[in-house]
């Protein structure tokens, strides 16, 4: 009976598709976590190099109230407030989905997406630059 074969085939394919999706999802994460480990090492060196500038920018970041919403040691998004650790290692900004680059961070600071207020009047262009540099070190 072709219908029985059909049902079994469809079910079989469904199960295989799910398995492939899961297995390769896991595989991708295990393979890539190794690569990340490598990158982290490079970052530590970069951080040390920029520590002077990074530190004062961290104070600015806190001073301007950014830390009230954004954790710098977490990647987790809580109620639309994304943690910013490793921001520049991601491809997209967490809420707007725009590509991660200085231009789009500036855009977000001046005319922000979603919940965040605008910092257009509260940051000078030079301060914006320092915050962007700081975000790169996270």
């Amino acid at each position: 009976m072709r219908q029985t074969t059909l049902h079994r085939t469809t079910l079989g394919l469904l199960i295989i598709f799910i398995c492939v999706a899961v297995l390769f999802g896991v595989l991708r994460n295990t393979v890539v976590s190794r690569q990340n480990g490598h990158e982290e090492h490079q970052h530590t060196q970069a951080d040390a190099h920029d520590s002077q500038e990074g530190l004062s920018a961290a104070a600015l970041f806190k001073d301007k109230g950014c830390t009230q919403c954004h954790q710098t040691d977490s990647t987790e998004t809580k109620v639309g407030r994304p943690g910013l650790q490793g921001l520049f290692e991601r491809k997209k900004l967490p809420v707007s989905g725009r590509p991660v680059n200085a231009e789009n961070i500036r855009k977000q600071l001046r005319g922000p997406y979603a919940n965040m207020p605008s910092y257009a009047d509260r940051l000078t262009p030079e301060e914006e630059d320092r915050i962007i540099v700081y975000l790169k070190t996270l």
Partner: peptide, 21 residues
């Protein structure tokens, strides 16, 4: 799925990648 696993650069966590797959 094969292509992105071998060639794609970054993982976004198992749950996200499952969603993507």
């Amino acid at each position: 799925v094969w292509l992105t696993t071998w060639l794609g650069e970054e993982a976004e966590g198992i749950v996200s990648d499952l969603g993507r797959n």
